[in-house]
C-alpha cells in the first residue's frame, strides 16, 4: 500500500513536469517562431529597443529554452532572482514569474483567486449531489411514471442548456427583477451572509448542470443494481425495502458516483470559466480569461499548472479512495 502511494506520487510529479514542459514551450517558444517577442509583450507596445533588451536580459529570455525552463521550474521550488539593469529583484518561492500587465508576482494573484473558485465548486457540489442523486434514485424507483419522465426531462434540459444561458436567466430573475441577491462576491471572513448571498446564484447555475448529469448517472446505475442477484438475496433475508434500497442498492450505486465526483471536482478548479465570468466571480477561471485577453503568459501558465495539479491530484485521491470504496480492488 505504502509503496503503491509512493509510486503514484512519483507518477504525479512526472505528469506535472510534463504538463509544465509542454505549456512552457507553447508559451515561450512557439510565439518566437511566429515573430512575437515575450520581452516586447512584457514591456508594452511603445518601448524603445534598449528597454526591451534590458528586460530580455533580466528575464533571461535570450538564454537557451531549456535553461529558461530550468530557471522556471527551480523558481517554483526555490524562488528566483532577476538580475539586470543594476538591480536585483527577488521573487520568493513559489515563483511563477511576474504578470506582463501588472508586473505583480503571479503566485499571490493566483492564491487570491483560488478561494472563490473552491467555494464555487464545493458549494455547487453539495447542491448537485443532494439534487441529482435524490432525483436519480426516485426516478429509478418510479421508473416509467410521470415523476420519472418529469425528472428526466428536467435533467435533459439541465444537460443541454449552456451555463451562460441559465446563469443569465437566474441573474435576470433573482437579481434584477426580484432583487433577492446581490451577486457580488465578498470574502467569507468579511461577511459570511454576503458571501453566501453572492455565491448562491453561481452555485445553483453550476449545480443545475451537474445535478442533471448525476441524476441520469444515478438513475441508470440504480436500475442496473436493482436487477442484481444480491438485491434479491437482501429481500430473501427479510430486509425491509427501505434497507434494501437505502443500504444495499445505494452502496453499489454510490461507487461510480464517487469516482466521477472526484474527477469533476478536480476539473472544476480551472474550468468554471463560464460560471465565474457570468457572475463576475474573481476566481481562477476568470483570471484565465482576463489573462488570455491580455496575452499575459505568466498568469495563463500559472492557471494551467494549478488546474493540472488539481486534476492529477483528484485522480490520485479517487484511485486511492477506490480501494476503500470497492474492496475488490487491491492495491498492490
Amino acid at each position: 500500500m505504502f509503496a503503491y502511494i509512493v509510486r503514484r506520487l512519483f507518477a504525479v510529479i512526472v505528469m506535472l513536469l510534463v504538463v509544465t514542459l509542454v505549456t512552457f514551450f507553447i508559451f515561450f517558444t512557439i510565439p518566437k517562431l511566429t515573430g512575437a517577442d515575450p520581452a516586447a509583450m512584457y514591456v508594452g507596445k511603445q518601448a524603445d529597443p534598449e528597454t526591451i533588451e534590458g528586460i530580455r536580459q533580466k528575464l533571461g529570455l535570450s538564454d537557451p529554452v531549456l535553461v529558461q525552463f530550468w530557471h522556471f521550474v527551480s523558481g517554483i521550488f526555490a524562488g528566483r532572482d532577476y538580475t539586470g539593469g543594476g538591480t536585483v529583484d527577488h521573487c520568493p518561492a513559489p515563483c511563477f514569474g511576474y504578470s506582463f500587465r501588472t508586473e505583480q508576482a503571479v503566485w499571490p494573484i493566483l492564491t487570491d483567486r483560488l478561494p472563490p473558485t473552491l467555494a464555487l465548486a464545493g458549494g455547487a457540489c453539495v447542491i448537485w449531489l443532494l439534487l441529482g442523486v435524490t432525483a436519480g434514485v426516485v426516478s429509478a424507483l418510479k421508473r416509467g411514471t410521470k415523476i420519472d419522465r418529469g425528472a428526466m426531462m428536467t435533467a435533459l434540459a439541465g444537460v443541454s442548456l449552456p451555463i451562460y444561458f441559465t446563469a443569465l436567466l437566474l441573474l435576470a430573475l433573482f437579481k434584477y427583477k426580484l432583487g433577492w441577491t446581490s451577486s457580488e462576491y465578498v470574502d467569507f471572513a468579511d461577511d459570511p451572509a454576503g458571501w453566501f448571498g453572492g455565491l448562491i446564484l453561481p452555485w445553483v447555475a453550476l449545480a443545475f448542470l451537474y445535478a442533471a448529469m448525476y441524476a441520469r448517472l444515478t438513475r441508470a446505475t440504480m436500475m442496473e443494481v436493482l436487477g442484481e442477484d444480491y438485491i434479491r438475496t437482501a429481500r430473501a433475508k427479510g430486509l425491509t425495502e427501505r434497507m434494501v434500497i437505502g443500504k444495499h442498492a445505494m452502496r453499489s450505486t454510490m461507487t461510480p458516483i464517487a469516482t466521477i465526483l472526484g474527477m469533476d471536482l478536480g476539473a472544476l478548479v480551472g474550468s468554471a470559466i463560464l460560471t465565474e465570468s457570468a457572475f463576475n466571480l474573481p476566481g481562477l477561471g476568470q483570471a484565465a480569461v482576463t489573462a488570455i485577453n491580455n496575452r499575459d503568459l505568466p498568469i495563463i501558465l500559472g492557471v494551467v499548472l494549478i488546474a493540472a495539479t488539481a486534476v492529477v491530484v483528484a485522480n490520485l485521491v479517487v484511485d486511492l479512495l477506490y480501494a476503500v470504496i470497492d474492496p475488490r480492488v487491491r492495491l498492490s
Binding site: 438475496t233 430473501a236 474492496p327
Partner: peptide, 15 residues
C-alpha cells in the same frame, strides 16, 4: 430461507 444458485452474484460484493 433460500439458497441461491450463484453465490458470487448472490452476495453483496461490498459487505
Amino acid at each position: 430461507a433460500m439458497i441461491f444458485q450463484d453465490p458470487l452474484s448472490a452476495m453483496h460484493p461490498y459487505f
